[in-house]
């Protein structure tokens, strides 16, 4: 189990605010920190990885103290067994795919590289350089590099946000598979609700540095907010004007639905599609 209880003064676009979070991550759990830009999400990951120091607090990994401001303990990043995937891939451009993944490994661990490259479907590209890969492929290299050392926690800082929609969906599936396959403990930072729903066991909703809500994605985003039992999160893919209506096509976890509305939306908007439980028809498919 990972225990995080930290405070740090930050400067956001509205001025100074205090990041003040306390939470635990169970082994094997997929936890997401959700929040708007500037809410302090990325700082939490960087503090866990040791890339930034909190003003005060305590971080523990399975009984091993990584940071304790009272006792003056502060393990440097290289002594913390964390895997970190950044939004911008952060690969070494002068190294091949294989060399990038093997970079931080000892010689005797090198046989794991081939195995992990096969899992992320990059084995055939192992001698290529990052510049010749697509964004999705580069991010899979970064992911392979982060998990090859069998980290105590995998930290993902909006890893898919720079990718095309269809690649993003594919990589979400792969991320979920890897999390289960390697029994990883994963902490994701995301502001994409459909992504949070798809991947997370639990969500922490961060606002201005404070935890506003915590629970399953359903508890945090849906329950007690709207009485529609027939409600789903989705992303607007298309908007067609028809007569005095807008016909909005929404992707709900791969299922496309159309909703007739007079409201205006933009492509890419994250939306809640809902109806009363009394309204949909249900019919057996014979």
């Amino acid at each position: 189990m990972i225990v995080v209880d930290v405070k740090k003064e930050l400067i956001g676009y509205k001025g100074k605010f205090t990041l003040d979070v306390s939470f635990k991550v169970e082994k094997g759990e997929f936890l997401t920190i959700f929040g708007k830009s500037g809410s302090g999400k990325t700082t939490v990951l960087r503090i866990i990885a040791g890339l930034e120091n909190p003003d005060e607090g305590y971080i523990e990994f399975d009984g091993k103290v990584y940071f304790d401001s009272k006792k003056g303990v502060n393990l440097p990043p290289q002594k913390r067994n964390v895997g970190f995937v950044f939004q911008n891939y952060a690969l070494f451009p002068n190294m091949t795919v294989y060399e990038n993944v093997a970079f931080a490994l000892d010689k005797e661990e090198r046989d794991k590289v081939d195995e992990i490259l096969k899992v992320v479907e990059l084995y055939n590209l192992k001698d290529r350089y990052p510049s010749s890969l697509s964004g999705g492929q580069q991010q899979r290299v970064a992911l392979a590099r982060a998990i090859v050392k069998n980290p105590d926690i995998l930290l993902l800082d909006e890893p898919l946000s720079a990718l095309d929609y269809s690649i993003r969906l594919k990589l979400q599936d792969q991320l979920k598979k890897l999390h289960k396959m390697f029994n990883l403990t994963t902490l994701l930072v995301s502001h994409d609700k459909p992504e949070v729903f798809k991947l997370s066991d639990r969500v922490i909703y961060l606002e201005d540095g404070k935890i506003k809500k915590e629970g399953t994605p359903r508890e945090v985003f849906i329950e007690k907010s709207i009485s529609g039992k027939f409600s789903f999160y989705g992303t607007v893919l298309d908007i067609r004007k028809s007569d005095i209506l807008n016909i909005v096509t929404v992707d709900i976890n791969g299922n496309l639905v159309e909703v007739a509305t007079t409201e205006d939306f933009n492509i890419g908007d994250e939306v809640l599609v809902g109806a009363k439980a009394f309204n949909p028809i249900i019919k057996k498919i014979s």
Partner: peptide, 8 residues
Amino acid sequence: PTNIILEV
């Protein structure tokens, strides 16, 4: 009555 959605 079956068509009113409540938002909290």
